[in-house]
């Protein structure tokens, strides 16, 4: 008999139960297995009713974020052996309503993404046939880091501000706004600032910094938010001291 490890999974079946409860399973402690492999082992061979989201299993689709031993993680990149001898506790991402088992509700996040206008805004609109917008590697480097977000929402699960006030736009959406602001091809900074300079925008953040700590793609949303605060402050002073400068 190969070595095994105990995995405690939060189960919540809204049609049967009022409250989530932990259920324990024994799974093989295979050194190549990640937590997601163990969940699939349970689903395939022990209990087909266990529900969770997953897809690419290579850390880029952003589906499989869950809470592993209290920490938000991409379960496809979290090895079982790291937690040996166990047990490992797997729960849904914190700060979101739970739909079922390990599946959380994320339409709120999608609305927030859309609210920051994450697309190129241009005052002119040159036809693509005229050629590419020139952008040097240095200009690309300005925003590249903020473009790496896979929308896994692990930063929201780690953010106490979002946990306490779900109105807060949150780390990933603000980082995405900043990604476009810093893109040399974009001219929409002012439009986005109007959304984000509100109370639930950047000012909700008090620099806890956990979003950056937990980000599996090194996006540094905390950095994006602080940059944004600086930009918003400059903007405010400008419009306060020189009201005529604003169009």
């Amino acid at each position: 008999m190969a070595e095994t490890i105990t995995i405690e999974v939060a189960r919540y079946r809204p049609e049967e139960e009022g409250e989530p409860a932990l259920q324990s399973y024994e799974v093989p402690l295979n050194k190549d297995w990640v937590v997601l492999d163990a969940l699939n082992h349970i689903k395939d061979h022990v209990d087909g009713s266990l529900s969770f989201r997953w897809s690419c299993r290579m850390g880029v689709c952003g589906s499989c974020g869950m809470t592993v031993n209290g920490e938000p993680k991409l379960t496809c990149a979290t090895f079982l052996s790291h937690y040996a001898p166990g047990p490992i506790r797997v729960e849904p991402l914190k700060n979101f309503p739970v739909v079922r088992d390990l599946v959380i509700e994320m339409t709120d996040f999608l609305e927030k993404l859309q609210s920051v206008k994450p697309w190129i805004v241009r005052k002119d609109d040159p036809a693509p046939a005229k050629g590419e917008f020139l952008q040097t590697p240095e200009q690309l480097d300005e925003f590249k880091q903020f473009s790496m977000c896979i929308n896994c929402m692990i930063c929201y699960a780690a953010c106490p501000v979002y946990g306490l006030d779900p109105q807060f736009v949150g780390p990933a959406a603000i980082a995405l706004a900043q990604r476009y602001n810093l893109d040399s091809r974009d001219q929409g900074e002012q439009e986005r600032l109007d959304v984000l300079s509100q109370h639930e925008g950047i000012w909700g953040c008090t620099f806890v910094g956990e979003c950056t700590e937990v980000c599996p793609k090194n996006v540094d949303p905390a950095g994006a938010i602080q940059q944004y605060k600086l930009a918003a402050t400059k903007d405010w002073f400008k419009s306060f001291l020189m009201p005529w400068s604003k169009q």
Binding site: Q135, T136, P137, K144, Y180
Partner: peptide, 14 residues
């Protein structure tokens, strides 16, 4: 490219 895809670039921006 016009929709914002961050293509890798040459030093001259192409």
């Amino acid at each position: 490219e016009h929709w914002g895809c961050p293509w890798s670039r040459e030093p001259d921006g192409r």
